Computed example of a mutant assay.
Amino acid sequence: MGLDWAYFRRPYEELHDRHDAAERQEYLVGRQPTAAAHLAELAPLRKREPIPASGYTGDDERLWQIMKLYALSRVSDYLIELFCPAGDPPPGFGVTGGRAVMEGSTTHRLELGGWQINATPGWIGSRRLELDELAAYTGFFTDIGLTPFEHAETFSPFHHEIFAVMQDPSATRVILEEVLWPGFWFGDLLFSRAGVRVRAPRHLIDAAVATTSTLYFTFSREPRPTSDLSHNWGSNSQWRTSFHRFYSDEDGLHLNWDGQVDIGEDPPQQPADQSDDPNPLDQRRELLLHRCFVRSALPRDEDDRFPYDDRLSLTTAEWPLRPESIVRVPWTR
């Protein structure tokens, strides 16, 4: 078939017209053969390749393939949102957060990124899991040709999206308690991360920050705030957004492979036509690795960062990040 780059936009929009789990499940099953065929034509994206020295142009089919995969990621974001709605998790499950707010004024001092305010932090609700919706998500993406994974040995921010945190001051590291939903591979390309519940001391993973700070590289995760390059564009222009490619292969883990700035360097070398990023390097690495901030020193402008130009290659994705895990790999052709 010819490249119908806008195909996956249609199921995304049509899913919004199905208002219960059974109806959505029936719709996804009916779409499976065609969706599988459209995904198969994106096979060149399964392997990491050097970027053209001048970047992809509008005439390059690879760019259109990347945009087509972005539309499929919107289907994924919508289905994840359905099985992680606002609601109370089971007792003892941990903090699942939502959208951070400040409720009222008290005499307590709250430290946020080096500044202090008199306030009580709160959340607009929490989040729970809906297993029927989860089954529809897992079944559809498996059936169209993606490979599910859990990566259940240890916590890895490359592979795992934090859904819930159990704060444990006695812990000395981040402990993976449970994989809640699978992630998916498209060859070596990470299509989506697995959702996890972790146990950690506050200095490594702050429960409030890790579950309520802005989740980047994500279109929507209500009630959690998100940031995506399609935001604030028109109803048609937003679909010309590129999928953010995170790869795992024999040379390591490659975060945001299309980013122009290698933040493995210290200091990073900005392109000649860009001004230097004034944000601390450790914050830029934390944000790219987790796709959100996770530590208690939350920057005041945490919802106004731009990690989309940054890239980083690692041998392993541990937290805290080990400097010796950073590797340099050839990037351009």
Rank of each mutant, 00 (worst) to 15 (best):
E178A: 07
D60E: 10
M1F: 09
Q32P: 01
F293G: 00
W319L: 07
F83P: 01
A53M: 10
W257F: 05
P89C: 08
I263H: 00
C292V: 00
V75E: 06
P330W: 04
G145I: 11
V198N: 05
G55A: 04
D258K: 00
A22R: 13
L189E: 02
V196T: 12
T147K: 15
Q283C: 03
P11K: 07
D251R: 12
P182N: 10
L45D: 05
N256T: 02
R221L: 14
T107Q: 09
E133K: 03
A35W: 06
L180K: 05
E286S: 10
L146M: 15
T120P: 01
Q238W: 06
L69M: 15
S227L: 04
G122M: 07
F306W: 11
R333L: 12
L204Q: 12
L312M: 05
T212K: 03
R322C: 09
D258M: 14
A100P: 13
Y70F: 14
V329P: 02
R285E: 02
L112S: 12
V179R: 04
A40N: 09
F217T: 00
D4E: 15
F191P: 02
M67K: 15
D273V: 06
R328Y: 02
P52R: 03
D310K: 00
L45G: 13
W257C: 03
L131M: 07
F8C: 10
D282K: 06
A53E: 13
L28H: 02
R240H: 11
E14P: 13
Q25T: 13
D301W: 01
A210L: 01
T316M: 07
T212C: 14
K68A: 15
P121D: 09
L204E: 01
S192I: 02
R18I: 13
W257A: 10
F306D: 15
R221V: 03
D206Y: 00
S296T: 14
I80K: 12
D277R: 00
F8Y: 11
G114V: 04
R221H: 13
F140N: 05
T241D: 04
E23F: 11
H160R: 10
G234V: 00
D276L: 01
L134T: 08
R240L: 14
L110F: 14
S73N: 12
H160S: 08
F243T: 02
T214D: 05
P121G: 10
A40K: 11
S213P: 09
K68I: 03
D228K: 01
E13F: 03
V101S: 08
P121N: 10
I117R: 14
G30M: 11
F219Q: 09
A86V: 08
M1V: 15
D60G: 12
H203S: 07
N232M: 11
F191A: 09
A22V: 13
P33I: 02
F149C: 06
P91D: 12
R328M: 02
I144D: 10
R48D: 03
Y56D: 05
S237L: 13
F158I: 11
P225A: 15
L298V: 03
G139C: 06
V327R: 05
T332P: 00
D276N: 04
D277W: 01
S126N: 12
E324L: 02
V165R: 01
R99N: 13
G183L: 09
G145N: 07
E49D: 06
L288T: 01
R109E: 15
L321G: 05
F155W: 04
R62W: 08
S192M: 06
H254N: 09
A71T: 06
L28W: 10
D249E: 06
